[in-house]
Each structure stands twice: as structure tokens, then as C-alpha cells.
Design a protein around this nucleic acid. Structure first.
Length: 667
DNA sequence: TAAAATGCATGT
DNA sequence: CATGCATTTTAC
């Protein structure tokens, strides 16, 4: 049925002799086998039969006989000789001569595997899409033309913005943590930066968190450089179209890619610029092992390739701020008057704690300030955006007087009430009981579990504006854009539609619920969501106003009011450094059965000198242990854990332990 | 999942 | 202490 396959499957000794006689200069193929077992995460050498000499180039997919069965693999390299002293098996088959694992991506994949304690094959699966044979046989797409250098446009509003663009255009590699001005200009600004790199004959990779942002950037790119000069890579394209576009990039027909997570790995030629938009969005965290964060992948890629980097958002994530602090990148933003002119006016309502705590009460009695702002906007014919937290936040425990989140005295992990109905207060990281807690800020001893937000709250709110159109945008039904005109748009974070002429008012409801999540990143994440919603409001000069319902004394509220996200990120970083929390330290989360975790730690020892083992504590139906090391020893920790899981998987005695470095929320 | 390595009972 | 057979380990 498949004569080629049959011949390739059993080439026999004669073929090998012939191969040696006709003299391929590199008769050995170094192969990575596609196996998730950590102890097989190393190259294996195979003899290249003469018939495959031409096709089995580095980067191609192959099939090899491995431990008796046929498995998939990748040719990493061709060598004149092997250092393996046993007998070599021949390659069974070259699946396709297309060299899909290009050297730059192979090196990046290895580096990512090493940093996140994963295997090469796990990372290659993230990086290289599945083959589609029919698409591969299609004629090549036409090569896109090089666009002319762009005009700076709104980049002139940023201090050093034109300098950044001209450096890109000169083929240099500037690296910036970019604070975008509020408003809808950022997709165009990304397109301009991409155009500058393309004009210098360099490749560009742009990664955005979701499909809606992808549409916005794609529209801006189409306007700037034309549809034929870039491809967009999205999950919902389907395997054939996805592989078609990816191949056009691999073959050099197109040198600019925009997409969600997977686009970070696109094999563009002569990479000159990587862009990560809104790197604080947790959609950038890869959900498949070894769970790398796309911001970090892009940073690593830019660093290795000597490419420029643009890490942007309305505010820097704490991790991005660290890139500035460590001088890897410089801060790129506008001066204060420019920022203030572009942002709406921000006001705080809901300082009344009793009212704010009770979600039902706050919906029934919207603070007068918020109610009036909405009324005025509607009267002026402008839509109003109402942001409400999603339901289902983990209740955290905080001081009932000043609402400082309760933290463990020993490891600074968050406190919680573990077990069903149990009142035992304990640390969610190290498990130590914390019965005698008192607030470090106000010395108060009372604790309360914070309430959760509710979408119903916002729907009730709509009723108090009789006669006004109320539309909702959330996960179930997402709106992309709304026309100008009086309407109430109730949206959950991340689902806010853009208004054609900006919102007259933006109401940020129930900040307390978002801020009191049992999550290290609650403050940072709340500010990020507020900024994203507030950036959709009209500038203050055009009457735009934002009303935030939260305690005015809280740091994220202050940062929003002053529109100073970098200040918040710096302060947040300093605080985490003090407490020994990421990203000031590096952490690994080990999930599984407690004895298996203990076995892994034993097999991984000696751990780096600074390692601290916290736990195990119950977590999501299993046990979780955290390992914390200083940043310098992060790679070492990953290597030890990888080696340890290799030992265990070879022994086959223990159950699986999930290893995740830099977990988003270590709780 | 095929071959090699190891374990182990058995008969001398 | 060879030998044959079963089980475990390795993996090119």
C-alpha cells in the first residue's frame, strides 16, 4: 500500500553499506525523539540510509525505531560520526523534506525547556504546528514586497518615540517597556513599529492576548502595509489554513506575523522586532507543559536573536518593570501632561465601606457621583461602560478594619480557611496555622472573608436607568464595538467593547471584590483591568470621566487616579522583594501526591543553596509544595527539577508530579 | 514493543 | 555453576 514507506522501513544492511560507499559526508542524523519522558530528553544518533541523505536535513520530521516501536522525531543535526558506541539503527522514514524546526527556533525551544524544567519535545509541540501534507504540496505564495519606512505618526507623542522608530529602521535592536497612551491608537502604533522593522528588511513577530486584540492589530497592519505583507495566526483558523500561513512565513514569503500565543514561535526570517501587547494578561501564560509565559519567551527570543523588543500595555506588569530596573529595556512613554490630556478624569466613589462590602446594596444604591456621571454621559448622547468583576473569585481573608490582605508571618503566603466548614486559619503556601493573627498595619485582630462580585449586580443597575438600552458583553456573548449614542454597556474585564467615539463615562464597580482575591497579583491585575476599561473613555478635555468604586486609600486606586502605573509597578516590586515573592524570587510549584513530591525533591537534590521548600499544603484536590530560590539560581532549580523528574520517570515507581516554574498565582 | 540485560530455578 | 526460561530494563 505504501511501497516508499515499506522500503524506508527496512532498508537493510546493504543500503547502509551503499550509503557509506557513495559517501554522504554526514552519515549520522542526531534526532530528538518525540516523547514526554524527561529521561529521554537528549539526542539519539541514527544512521542515514543513502536514499534519505538528501531529504533528512536538520529541522525535518522523521520516524525512527525507538525501543522497538516507531516514533516521531526531529533531525537536530547531521554529523560525520557518532559518539555512541552501540549499533546505530537507520532512520525509518523522512516524513517530509520541509525543514520545519529551523535553527533559531530549535535553540529557543531548548532554552525555554531548560528555563521551565520541561523537555525539548514538549516545547517543540508548542512551537511547530502539525503538518498538513496537502498544504505542503501547494505552490508557494508570492513573496511580499518590502514596505517603505513609516512616518512616526502618533509615536511623536512619546518621549524618545521617534528615536525608537529610527533605531528600528536602522536595523538596531532597541528594547522598550512601552506605556501606551490611553485611547485606541495603540494598534496603529504597533503597526508603525512593525513597518519600520520591515522597511529595514527585518522580520517581525507581534503577540496579543486574544482574538479581539488580534483583529485590531491586523486591521492596523492592513492599513499600514497591506494584507499581503503579514499573516495573522489564530487558533480558530483550522489546521490547513494555519499551516499554510505558517509555511509562508517559514519559506520567507512573508516576514511579519501577528497572532496569539503560538505566534511567538513563528519562524520569521532575520527577526528584527518582537512585540508583546498587554503582557500582564494571563492569557499569555501557556496552559500546556512546561507552561512558559509568552512575554518571557519573546524576551528570550529577542535576546538570543539580537532583535528589538517592544513590551507594551497601558501599564507595565511587575515583570516588565523588572526588565527596566535591570536595564534590559528602557521605559518608553509620554510625558505627564500628554498622558493627562489623553486620559479621562478619574474620580473615586464608594468610600463608604459598609455599602461597598455588600454587593446587593451597592447595586441598589449606586453612589451619587457614579449615578450622576452616567446620567450626564447619557444625556450628552455618549455610551457608558460599566465594568463588573466576574463571579467565582476565591474568597480571601483580610483585616476587617483596614482590609489589608492577611499574610503568613513565616513565608508571606496568603492566609485562608482550609477544609470544608473548618475555621482553622492557615497559610495556603506553607500550611502553618495562623491562629493568633493581627493586622501588621492597624493591629486589628478581626478578619473577614471578602465578598465576590456578581453579574446580576450590574443587571439590576440597568433597571435604575429606565428607558436606556442596556447591553452586556461577557464570555458568553462578546461585543467588539459599540456605536456612539446613549446606552449602558455592562462588561466583564477583558470583554469591554470599543466605543466609536469613546465612552462618556466608565464606571468601575466592586473594586473591593477584585482587590481582595486570594492572589498575589490581585492589586496588579485589578489596576490592569481598570486601566484597560478607563483607556476606552473619552479624554478629560472631551468630557470623559471614570468613576472607580473602591477605597481611595488603596494603592491600585491611587495609581489609577494619578494614572501612574509605573509607580505602582515599582512599589509592588519593592513590596514583593521585601516579602520574598515573585518576580523578586523564582518559584516552582510541585503538584501531586505528597510522597511523590517528596521523592521528586529527593531525586532533585541537592537543590540550589538558596532553596526554601514550603508545604505541602492541599491544593486543587492534590498536594502542592512550593520551592523558592533567588533569581540567580532559577535556572539551576529548573535543571535540578528536570533531572529529578528524569530519575523518577526512569524508575517508574512514583505517580506524576506536575512541575510549574513561575506559577501565576502560587496559592 | 524488540532486543538486551538481569534474575532465578533447576539439574548437574 | 552452566543452562534455559521468565522478567525487567533500555531505549542510538
Amino acid at each position: 500500500m505504501n511501497p516508499a514507506g515499506a522500503a524506508g522501513g527496512s532498508p537493510g544492511f546493504k543500503d547502509q553499506l551503499e550509503g557509506a560507499a557513495t559517501g554522504p559526508s554526514l552519515p549520522i542524523a542526531r534526532v530528538a525523539v518525540d516523547s514526554p519522558l524527561p529521561h529521554l530528553d537528549r539526542p539519539f544518533d541514527y544512521a542515514v540510509p543513502a536514499t534519505m541523505d538528501e531529504a533528512a536535513q536538520p529541522g525535518t520530521r522523521v520516524r525512527v525505531r525507538f525501543a522497538g516501536r516507531l516514533v516521531d522525531g526531529w533531525v537536530l543535526d547531521r554529523l560525520p560520526a557518532s559518539d555512541h558506541d552501540g549499533r546505530l539503527s537507520p532512520l525509518a522514514k523522512v516524513v517530509s523534506p520541509e525543514p520545519v524546526l529551523v535553527p533559531e527556533i530549535l535553540g529557543l525551544a531548548r532554552a525555554v525547556a531548560d528555563r521551565w524544567a520541561g523537555t525539548l519535545s514538549q516545547v517543540v509541540r508548542l512551537a511547530v504546528p502539525p503538518r498538513h501534507a496537502r498544504v505542503e504540496a501547494e505552490p508557494a505564495l508570492p513573496t511580499a514586497a518590502t514596505p517603505p519606512a513609516p512616518a512616526p505618526g502618533s509615536w511623536s507623542s512619546y518621549l524618545g518615540g521617534e528615536r525608537f522608530l529610527s533605531a528600528l529602521g536602522a536595523g538596531a535592536a532597541p528594547r522598550a517597556v512601552w506605556r501606551a497612551l490611553p485611547g485606541p491608537r495603540w494598534p496603529g502604533e504597533i503597526a508603525t513599529a512593525a513597518q519600520a522593522a520591515l522597511a529595514a528588511e527585518l522580520g517581525v513577530v507581534v503577540v496579543v492576548p486574544d482574538a479581539r486584540d488580534l483583529l485590531r492589530v491586523a486591521a492596523a497592519l492592513e492599513e499600514a502595509i497591506g494584507a499581503e505583507c503579514f499573516v495573522s495566526l489564530a487558533a480558530e483558523l483550522g489546521p490547513a489554513e494555519r499551516y499554510r500561513r505558517w509555511l509562508a512565513v517559514r519559506r520567507g514569503a512573508v516576514r511579519c506575523v501577528v497572532g496569539t500565543r503560538a505566534a511567538a514561535w513563528a519562524p520569521v526570517r532575520d527577526l528584527g522586532l518582537v512585540v508583546c501587547w498587554d503582557d500582564g494578561d494571563d492569557l499569555h501564560k501557556e496552559p500546556r507543559a512546561p507552561y512558559p509565559h509568552i512575554r518571557d519567551v519573546l524576551v528570550l527570543r529577542a535576546h538570543r536573536a539580537g532583535a528589538a523588543a517592544l513590551i507594551g500595555g497601558f501599564g507595565p506588569s511587575v515583570e516588565a518593570e523588572l526588565l527596566v530596573a535591570r536595564r534590559w529595556a528602557h521605559a518608553l512613554g509620554a510625558d505627564r501632561p500628554t498622558v493627562r490630556a489623553a486620559a479621562p478624569r478619574i474620580e473615586v466613589a464608594g468610600d463608604d465601606r459598609q455599602q461597598e462590602r455588600d454587593a446587593a446594596a451597592s447595586s441598589a444604591r449606586l453612589p451619587t457621583l457614579a449615578w450622576r456621571a452616567a446620567r450626564e454621559s447619557l444625556a450628552a448622547g455618549r455610551p457608558v461602560l460599566v465594568q463588573v468583576p466576574r463571579t467565582g473569585y476565591q474568597p480571601a481573608v483580610a483585616c476587617s478594619q483596614c482590609r489589608t490582605p492577611a499574610r503568613c508571618r513565616h513565608c508571606a503566603g496568603p492566609l485562608g480557611r482550609t477544609g470544608e466548614g473548618s475555621c482553622a486559619l492557615a497559610c495556603r503556601w506553607c500550611g502553618r496555622p495562623a491562629a493568633d493573627w493581627s493586622c501588621p498595619i492597624c493591629s486589628h485582630q478581626g478578619l473577614r472573608a471578602m465578598t465576590v462580585g456578581s453579574r446580576r449586580t450590574a443587571e439590576e443597575l440597568g433597571r435604575s436607568f429606565a428607558g436606556v438600552t442596556v447591553r452586556t458583553s461577557d464570555r458568553e456573548g462578546i461585543l467588539t464595538q459599540v456605536a456612539d449614542g446613549p446606552a449602558l454597556i455592562v462588561a466583564t474585564p477583558g470583554a469591554e467593547p470599543v466605543a466609536d467615539n469613546g465612552y462618556g463615562a466608565v464606571l468601575l464597580l466592586d473594586g473591593g471584590a477584585m482587590l481582595s482575591r486570594a492572589d498575589l497579583r490581585a492589586g496588579e491585575e485589578t489596576l490592569r483591568r481598570w486601566l484597560a476599561a478607563a483607556a476606552l473613555g473619552r479624554p478629560a478635555s472631551a468630557g470623559g470621566v471614570v468613576i472607580v468604586m473602591a477605597d481611595a486609600g488603596l494603592a491600585p486606586v491611587q495609581a489609577l487616579v494619578r494614572w501612574d502605573p509605573p509607580g505602582f509597578a515599582r512599589r509592588e516590586y519593592a513590596e514583593r522583594a521585601e516579602l520574598g515573592l515573585p518576580p523578586a524570587v523564582r518559584m516552582a510549584a510541585l503538584d501531586g501526591a505528597a510522597p511523590d513530591i517528596a521523592a521528586l525533591l529527593a531525586a532533585a537534590s541537592p537543590l540550589p543553596g538558596s532553596a526554601e521548600v514550603l508545604g505541602p499544603v492541599p491544593h486543587a484536590g492534590a498536594d502542592r509544595t512550593l520551592v523558592r530560590v533567588n533569581r540567580a539560581e532559577g535556572t539551576d532549580l529548573a535543571a535540578r527539577l528536570h533531572a529529578g523528574s528524569g530519575v523518577l520517570s526512569a524508575r517508574k515507581e512514583t505517580g506524576p508530579v506536575r512541575v510549574e516554574l513561575d506559577p501565576l498565582s502560587p496559592v
